[in-house]
Design a protein around this nucleic acid. Structure first.
Length: 742
DNA sequence: TGACGTCACTTTTTT
DNA sequence: AGTGACGTCA
């Protein structure tokens, strides 16, 4: 992975860390009193300023480590800041209030949980749990889930939470258009269920904490006094509730103590669809009277043409705070122009990108410094196939996360059910996993008993096994599970949590379930379970692990070897690469039609910021492309080049390939059935020979190669479909045209 | 309980 | 086109 490289360890001389800053960075670090907004353009040393400022506060003795609140959006950013602060002050830093908004809010909330009807050991639900719970609530309310899908309601609730709105304070105009005016009631019911389960969802962490700070002056004052300095990263991405939380904490009674420093870039605000409000950063001076603003405009990352092109593009946006990126690198004056390449279709585009990467690689380019950044996830596929075909190693970022995998979620549910007998969602997940003969009838009986007695499922189950409400077999199975949970819970008292966890997975039959499973994924799942136990060992207690797991859903993929990075533009924010490909610059795709439909002019500006983020990821080479034809939902559609292409300053770009726009006469296209792929008569610049026709039919037993799954042997042939046992990927059914004889 | 057919969906997703 | 969610059947 190609994150900003960590700087070399700083020399131990106090004060020397300041000497390594440019004047604007230094101003951002040394302006310690009062509110400060640091407008940090892409590649201007934002992280360095943030970490140096933190270290400076500590080294000058203005505050103890625990008196600084430092907030980030991602765990990665928090980790990095922690490491770099430690490196500057030359000792490990303990007791810091440094973390993500959610982690910090959770930590605070555990101290005041009772004020919002929770216990301090409340569970944090992940999105899957949230949506299962809301579904139950909506079903209980008799909502027609076909007309009013759970996920829509989930989105509505989340947006309310993002804006700091608890049930009861929803503006009337917003409640009428959903589920016959029941949206707010469903929200209230969902919150009640959460409270009953002693649980909070992600949004609650900040919502509850903000409510507490608003309603309890004594609590608020304690926190305000504790935090002498507040540091906020990526301020342009804060939503309303995060803003309220920060503002409450920063409104110290003594105006001279309102030391909040927010770092961000309004030009890189790309998360409005998640509730981020760019207005937060635009309004900073009004919100915090007497605020000072420091602009970081010296860019140390990219060449001059890249900066000029990005600047020219973003200048089209209105309502910017405004800043200009200046080349700050000694060698940045030269540099090649941005390339705009026009292609015939998405496959040719993939070939073009593949061919250039191949050539660059042969010329010595480190593939770990090459990235393909797309607007939408589905675009990665064409590139994957091409890179496989030509043998270029790559990684796709942002796939299924480790902690989202089924086996991991099951195991974690077991842990939760063990630790917290009131965790109905966890209990429900594992009660019949592996199958123990507890079918719908048994589960329904269980639910009924729990509801009648007003107790959690696990408690109700305890009572049920003493009666004949269940048939003998399910009753015995349930009893065994309950005894197991009790036994494992007791085990935690005197044995290591890793040992107990391993026991649990064995004795519950969960491991056995996958051992007996003959699907190709089973082996990988067993490996993942082992990995989970290893990860568990890194935490002192099971409770600490569970806290981590809810808030830190990250990819466990380690960066190994030099690979091309394939990811969305969103995922690329904060990263940088020598060579960046930006494919798919076509109207409808980028800017995304859906964005425009839903968000109008504001959405277009956000798409433009996304383009700006994309270009500014590149240090030296930036290759933008568009295809005249693209397959969308199965049919081929002709496209129009993105308006952003025309917005790039002409002096900074070089165009390659025929400019194929809809103005091109249709006579050069071969006619085909409607929706079939148009064929180009004149071969395009990057047209390469098609795969040679296969000689003879594929036969059972034959060894073949598949672009995605590698080598395997054919088990069965059925028309054009083949069942193949792949050496790496297990057995799969694939179309014959994707394989070739090995 | 699992296998199969039908249907709708398809942008981005830091926690 | 490809996928995943849901309902129905044996």
């Amino acid at each position: 992975m190609s994150a900003t490289p960590a700087p070399p360890a700083p020399p131990p001389v106090p004060g020397d860390y300041l000497a390594r800053l440019n004047p604007e960075q230094r101003a951002a670090v040394e302006t310690l009193e009062g509110p400060l907004l640091v407008l940090a353009g892409a590649g201007t040393g934002k992280t360095r300023v943030l970490t140096t400022r933190f270290a400076h506060i500590l080294l000058t003795g203005r505050a103890q480590p625990h008196q600084v609140l430092a907030v980030t959006f991602t765990n990665k950013a928090a980790r990095e800041m922690r490491a770099r602060v430690a490196a500057i002050i030359q000792r490990p830093v303990e007791g810091l209030w440094l973390g993500t908004f959610h982690a910090l809010a959770a930590r605070m909330l555990r101290r005041h949980a009772e004020l919002v009807g929770l216990r301090s050991d409340f569970t944090i639900l992940d999105p899957d749990d949230q949506s299962r719970l809301l579904k139950q609530v909506m079903e209980a309310a008799g909502v027609d889930l076909k007309r009013w899908p759970v996920n829509n309601m989930m989105g509505i609730i989340q947006r309310w939470k993002d804006r700091g709105l608890p049930p009861g304070r929803i503006p009337a105009a917003e409640t009428s258009d959903y589920a016959n005016n029941r949206a707010e009631a469903l929200y209230a019911a969902y919150q009640a269920r959460l409270a009953a389960l002693n649980a909070a969802d992600f949004g609650d962490l900040l919502l509850h904490m903000t409510e507490i700070l608003r309603g309890h002056a004594d609590v608020l004052e304690r926190w305000q006094r504790l935090f002498r300095y507040i540091l906020v990263d990526e301020y342009q991405d804060t939503n309303l509730v995060q803003y309220m939380w920060l503002r409450l904490l920063a409104q110290h009674a003594d105006p001279a103590q309102r030391n909040i420093c927010c770092v961000g870039d309004d030009d890189q605000s790309i998360y409005s669809w998640r509730g981020a409000e760019i207005e937060n950063i635009l309004r900073f001076e009004k919100d915090f009277p007497g605020a000072r603003i420091v602009r970081l405009e010296s860019n140390y990352r990219s060449t001059r043409p890249i900066l000029a092109a990005a600047s020219g593009l973003i200048a089209r946006n209105e309502g910017r705070l405004g800043k200009t990126l200046r080349p700050g690198r000694a060698d940045s004056q030269g540099g090649e122009k941005i390339r705009i390449v026009s292609l015939w279709d998405s496959e040719e585009e993939a070939r073009m990108v593949g061919a250039r990467i191949e050539a660059a690689s042969r010329a010595g380019q480190d593939l770990g410094e090459v990235a393909i950044l797309v607007r939408a996830g589905f675009q990665t596929r064409a590139f994957e196939e091409r890179l496989i075909a030509i043998g270029i190693p790559y990684r796709v970022f942002g796939g299924a996360k480790f902690y989202e995998r089924q086996e991991i979620r099951d195991a974690v549910a077991y842990f939760r059910a063990m630790v917290n007998p009131a965790d109905d969602l966890a209990f429900e997940r594992i009660v019949n996993t592996p199958k123990r003969g507890l079918g719908d009838t048994a589960i329904a009986t269980l639910h009924r008993a729990a509801r009648e007695q007003g107790v959690p499922l696990a408690i109700a189950a305890r009572g049920l096994v003493g009666t004949d409400a269940l048939r003998p077999k399910p009753r015995a199975a349930l009893r065994e599970l309950l005894e197991g949970l009790d036994r494992w819970r007791a085990g935690l008292e005197h044995e290591g949590h890793v040992v107990v966890a391993a026991q649990l997975l064995e004795e519950s039959g969960y491991t056995a379930m996958w051992q007996q499973d003959r699907s190709p994924e089973a082996a990988g799942r067993l490996d993942n379970l082992k990995e989970l136990l290893r990860a568990l060992g890194e935490f002192a207690t099971m409770a600490a692990f569970l806290e981590h797991i809810a808030l830190v859903m990250e990819n466990d993929e380690a960066a190994e070897g030099a690979r091309v990075s394939l990811m969305t533009l969103h995922a690329a924010k904060g990263l940088e690469f020598d060579m960046v490909f930006l494919p798919g610059w076509e109207e409808g795709l980028f800017p995304s039609q859906r964005s425009l439909d839903e968000g109008g002019a504001k959405a277009l500006e956000e798409e433009r910021r996304l383009a700006y983020v994309g270009i500014t990821r590149a240090r030296r080479h930036c290759i933008i492309s568009h295809a005249a034809n693209r397959r969308i939902y199965g049919n081929w559609t002709s496209t129009i080049p993105s308006r952003f292409l025309d917005e790039l300053p002409e002096a900074e770009v070089v165009r390659e390939g025929e400019t194929r726009t809809p103005a091109m006469p249709h006579s050069v296209f071969a006619a085909g059935p409607l929706g079939s792929r148009p064929r180009l008569i004149e071969a395009g610049a990057w047209e390469v020979t098609a795969r040679p026709a296969r000689a003879g039919a594929l036969q059972v037993g034959q060894r073949v190669f598949h672009q995605k799954f590698g080598y395997g042997r054919i088990i069965a042939v059925e028309d054009d479909r083949l069942d193949i046992d792949f050496e790496k990927a297990g057995s799969k059914r694939v179309l014959d045209r994707f394989v070739e004889p090995a």
